[in-house]
Design a protein around this nucleic acid. Structure first.
Lengths: 155, 155
DNA sequence: ACAATAAAATATCATTTGGTCTTTTAAAAG
DNA sequence: CTTTTAAAAGACCAAATGATATTTTATTGT
């Protein structure tokens, strides 16, 4: 459903939302190694995101990528708009040409509410909210062993 | 989520389930034009499905593809196993490395039940059941104008 | 036997996605 | 003003997916 690029983008933005600020920027190198994403690939993605004002960046020594207060008000949809080149929510899951609420495919009643719920979350919840929720739930952006709530899964 | 190939495969098999039998076979040409799928592409897919006993086929005059009684007892998962080369239900939707019920990503509670419901349907419901349901619901496999329940959408 | 039919097999090509590398530009610090 | 740092830009390569065209094999009817 989501491309690798989009998943990488989302993870990176959420990482920046959790860790960065105007005064604490991260280079592509750090982000790549922290999230275990190929450096050159994530660099290109980060550049796209910066160009589209989803995140912020500065060149030169002490430069890097970060999320500003304004950036944090963005939502996931805006990330997807930059990376993905078509609406991931469009079209019947089975590819039936005229599947709709009136002529539902056999899994329409499963797929439609799922799409609705995701779209709601992706458009109404800010990056900041998302990042907070991740922290609270104890889920991981990084592969590296990070202790959360005293619960070190990597030992 | 599903590749074009898988969607085409599912539509074709369901078409055969609805329309074919040992005594009424369909050539790749007919299926392609009926479902508006590129001929050479669907031919290759049908061959794969036939080779894997998801559908049946006969060469020569009067030959073609069809679903036998046994074929109709197959389920959607078996189609996906033939066409798709990795489990579409595996992995976190956002690509978070260690997302789980214990460390859920922010959309885990939306995605997990969706996957469960789909998997249940794809593995426990036969092709025959699926085809029947499509007919009853009035949804379309073909792009061609077919009147269903007196409700001709193409006029 | 042979012509016609249609699947099976195979080789090939195009596009998209994923990923890498090199050069250029901007900014900071000595 | 030169060196260092790091993003920006763009060219490039590889793999996967989508799609096509050609040849071979099996079957049926004449």
């Amino acid at each position: 459903m989501l491309s690798n690029a989009s998943k990488y983008a989302i993870r990176s933005v959420l990482f920046l939302a959790e860790n960065s600020s105007e005064h604490k920027k991260y280079g592509a190198k750090e982000i790549a190694s922290e999230l275990e994403i190929p450096l050159s690939f994530i660099a290109k993605i980060l550049q796209k995101l910066a160009k589209s004002d989803v995140i912020s960046s500065n060149k030169g020594p002490g430069g890097g990528f970060y999320t500003s207060k304004t950036n944090l008000q963005n939502n996931i949809c805006q990330i997807l708009n930059v990376i993905e080149n078509e609406d991931i929510f469009e079209g019947c899951f089975l590819g039936l040409p005229r599947c709709s609420d009136e002529n539902p495919c056999p899994i329409h009643h499963i797929v439609a509410p799922f799409k609705d719920a995701l779209l709601e979350k992706f458009s109404n919840q800010s990056i900041a909210d998302f990042a907070r929720e991740i922290k609270e739930n104890g889920s991981f952006l990084s592969l590296k062993g990070v202790s959360i709530k005293g619960n070190d899964l990597l030992k």
